[in-house]
Design a protein around this nucleic acid. Structure first.
Lengths: 189, 189
DNA sequence: TATGACATGTAATCTGTTACATGATTAG
DNA sequence: CTAATCATGTAACAGATTACATGTCATA
């Protein structure tokens, strides 16, 4: 099975929430801060086509008198399985390097797709991955601050702060979920 | 003049600091947190070739007895001009949407390329651009938190925190530069 | 009936990823 | 001498951007 891009997974996640047409999806991207994942038709329609070829989604043309053509996509069982696999995969070093957005996107969909226990699991895995990464960055900072000009040093500090903020957010999110699971008792998945 | 990618600008910035070979540059990328800008030869060598075609850099083959072939690149005057133009351009809405890394990269090189006054200018421009962007995100958050599941809400909060952290960092960096410029008196460029 | 929003796409181009290829030099 | 590392690349492919193309429906 071929690789799927971030945009592809974003589309799968949105389609899991609600079957939608390409146009609907585009509107979601362009009207929210998800526009980081490209809101251009030249990216979205081909991506949907690829997912369809991989049998992860399927389209049904909605019929109706006086209705415009509307091609709604929905997840197939294979698509749901792929989405679950992506969300529950362990957080790697690579994920830290390429930036946290992908992991956070996985987390964003996690509760609805795999349940709050799995959301919590993902957060704990992220926390574990963050510690060595942060240590590496701090070492690099110690080396850099001796040689770099002020602007270079400050720029690195920004990166460092960002990762520290991610760790704090992760811990805050873990607490939030622990509370939620406890208060929901033994009924939550 | 054709567009230049982030990687291209990162290369220009590094070459401004020090003339280097493709291999040197690759090592910088792969050994530091700059590896976000691709450390693969299939990205770096073609990017260097493109910059050379645009006459922004030029290569000189270093000769020497018993030396391996080494092709060192350095900026041309046009390359320096392009780098300055990129760094001093105003910070736009687009820059906020596509993520802050590009602006911070510009800032990282700014002091050495255009001087600390310009670094400060860039930071102030960033601060100005951040305010409306933050306002937009907060509005979006108010809408989202009513309908989204916990994980979706938390994921958005992470984005929001990131931008707030960027604003705080910007203000901290501005103060740092104001102090530095004052203490350097009227001699700094 | 003309304008604009709805809805779906395609084509050219560019850039990056992955994986492989090549030859020179140094260490054991 | 052979393995590793230095140093530079190429080829095939995937995916995104930009800009354009097409046709439908509601409304003024």
């Amino acid at each position: 099975m071929a690789r799927i891009s971030s945009l592809g997974y974003a589309l799968l996640g949105l389609l899991h929430q609600k079957p939608s047409s390409g146009y609907d999806l585009r509107k979601i991207f362009s009207s929210t801060s998800m526009k980081t994942y490209s809101d251009s038709p030249g990216a979205i329609y081909p991506a949907l086509r690829r997912l369809e070829e991989q049998q992860l989604i399927r389209s049904t043309i909605e019929e109706g008198v006086g209705l415009r053509r509307r091609q709604a996509f929905r997840l197939t069982p294979a698509g749901l399985a792929e989405l679950k696999k992506w969300i529950t995969a362990p957080v790697t070093r690579e994920d830290m390097i390429s930036g946290s957005e992908n992991v956070v996107l996985r987390f964003a969909f996690s509760e609805q797709v795999v349940g709050s226990r799995a959301s919590l699991e993902l957060l704990r895995c992220l926390e574990t991955a963050l510690e060595p990464h942060l240590a590496t960055l701090r070492e690099e900072y110690e080396l850099l601050k001796k040689v770099a000009p002020t602007s270079g040093r400050l720029a690195f500090e920004y990166g460092l702060r960002g990762v520290e903020a991610l760790l704090q957010w992760t811990q805050y999110a873990i607490k939030t979920y622990e509370k939620q699971i406890k208060s929901n008792g033994r009924r939550a998945s």
